[in-house]
Computed example of a mutant assay.
Amino acid sequence: MKVVVDLAVCQDHGQCAIAAPDVFRINDDGKLEYDDAPPEELREDVEDAADVCPVQAILIEG
């Protein structure tokens, strides 16, 4: 699975970090950081994160 976040669209709301904290996190500067190739067992959490993103900036490939 490959995760792509459109950082031009992302507004750092952090909902993804709540839904999938093993993949997404907000750094000390308030900006999103994420694992772009998380293990397959985290797919459900990543899908939940994509669903709750208020600006729909998260894309899951593969």
Score class of each variant (00 low, 15 high):
26 I>W: 01
54 P>R: 01
32 L>K: 00
6 D>Y: 04
17 A>D: 02
34 Y>M: 03
56 Q>L: 09
4 V>F: 13
53 C>M: 03
6 D>W: 03
10 C>S: 10
17 A>T: 08
23 V>C: 07
57 A>Y: 00
42 L>W: 10
15 Q>T: 04
32 L>W: 01
47 E>D: 09
22 D>C: 00
26 I>G: 04
29 D>V: 04
17 A>Y: 04
52 V>T: 12
9 V>A: 13
8 A>W: 02
42 L>M: 11
56 Q>A: 15
22 D>K: 12
52 V>Y: 09
40 E>C: 00
43 R>Y: 06
9 V>Y: 00
33 E>Y: 00
7 L>A: 05
61 E>N: 04
33 E>V: 13
13 H>E: 13
47 E>P: 01
51 D>L: 11
13 H>D: 13
49 A>R: 09
38 P>E: 05
22 D>M: 11
20 A>P: 11
59 L>F: 09
36 D>C: 08
58 I>H: 02
24 F>W: 06
14 G>S: 12
31 K>F: 12
25 R>F: 03
39 P>D: 13
41 E>Y: 12
25 R>P: 00
31 K>D: 13
33 E>K: 01
8 A>H: 07
1 M>N: 06
53 C>T: 01
58 I>S: 05
39 P>F: 05
24 F>L: 09
42 L>I: 06
30 G>A: 12
61 E>K: 12
31 K>W: 11
57 A>F: 01
7 L>Y: 08
29 D>K: 12
51 D>E: 15
18 I>S: 09
27 N>M: 11
3 V>S: 11
12 D>C: 11
28 D>L: 11
36 D>R: 04
30 G>D: 09
11 Q>M: 14
49 A>E: 09
41 E>K: 02
47 E>C: 01
54 P>K: 03
16 C>N: 02
34 Y>A: 02
51 D>I: 00
5 V>Q: 05
20 A>D: 06
4 V>Q: 15
54 P>N: 07
60 I>W: 07
56 Q>M: 10
19 A>S: 13
